[in-house]
Design a protein around this nucleic acid. Structure first.
Lengths: 166, 166
DNA sequence: TATCGATATCTTACCAGTAAGAGACATGAG
DNA sequence: CTCATGTCTCTTACTGGTAAGATATCGATA
């Protein structure tokens, strides 16, 4: 008994035996897993009054280290969404007192987005729990298989040019 | 030199050495890859006047076999989007003459969504090219590594309950 | 056969994100 | 010093999807 993608592949082999559809076994699974994992992670953060997009910004700022601030442009590069989406996220998060906009002393085009004390506290309280939740989602893989999986995924990401966040 | 996720993990190890963040190496990569692959595949279909959501419906109907029709409910289960989204997709695709709604003879609650001749032609013309494009996206992996990757992803999907499309 | 819960599709109000570009500011070449 | 070009953030109009529920129909049971 396979997974949902095995069913898709069986159907294609019946309908289009002339095409070797092996890439579907990788691409289709990555897409389905991404959706399932995103839903699970969203459920986790929602229990604490956050959503995925807010958690994305909070974690990006937190792991950047003291003083926990980045420009909107840096957040765009780290996030895989457009600048318009980042502006809106920041607007929402300012009203929730998770981040604040502080003017840049040197370059007046630039704004710095800084974690508030509340934002810092929120993500620090949640981070270990969030990682524990991701560990639970991956518990079907032992550590060796997980490492092998991560290696193969890294190879793909590098080949697609995903080598930097800045 | 690693990928973008290696940079994220290095940052976390510096900022939160108390947390073992190994799951990020899998979850983060699946999420980034899903976005990158989706963008690439969207670019591919856009060259032929389609978008991802339309291609999703066309492929689902095509691989279901003669007479190339499914109910909206079956499309919902195959697609990972809500029924409202499927209704809208069908509306758009009807105006583009890719599918048609045909009443079900037996159950009048049910509608059958059927590929038109144009829809059938469109997906049949594109399918082999689409698979060739996916093959290109995965060319960094040889066939053995791709099989191993697919196996690990299948294990995860099954553990998360993703075993059927119906 | 009348009724009631289950099922199937569609509707409505809303929202996050996108694409394109506007506006403000910086900077280097001449 | 000036101006043209580049950079940075934000705005606007739009779109695809969601959540919740309305509407219509089916089917089992008393």
């Amino acid at each position: 008994m396979g997974d949902a993608v095995d069913a898709v592949m069986d159907a294609w082999r019946r309908e289009r035996p002339d095409v070797d559809i092996w890439p579907v076994g990788v691409v289709g699974r990555i897409q389905r897993l991404a959706r399932l994992l995103e839903t699970e992670i969203q459920d986790f953060f929602r229990r604490y009054g956050l959503d995925n997009s807010e958690a994305d910004v909070l974690t990006t700022l937190r792991r950047s280290g003291e003083p926990y601030e980045l420009t909107p442009g840096q957040l765009v590069k780290a996030s895989m969404v457009t600048s318009g989406a980042i502006t809106k996220r920041i607007d929402r998060m300012v009203t929730k007192n998770l981040v604040e906009r502080v003017p840049d002393a040197v370059d007046r085009r630039t704004v710095r987005i800084r974690l508030t004390a509340h934002g810092r506290q929120t993500i620090d309280d949640l981070f270990a729990l969030h990682i524990a939740n991701e560990t639970r989602l991956l518990q079907a893989l032992d550590r060796d298989r997980a490492d092998g999986l991560a290696d193969a995924l890294r190879t793909l990401l590098q080949s697609l040019g995903d080598t930097s966040l800045t």
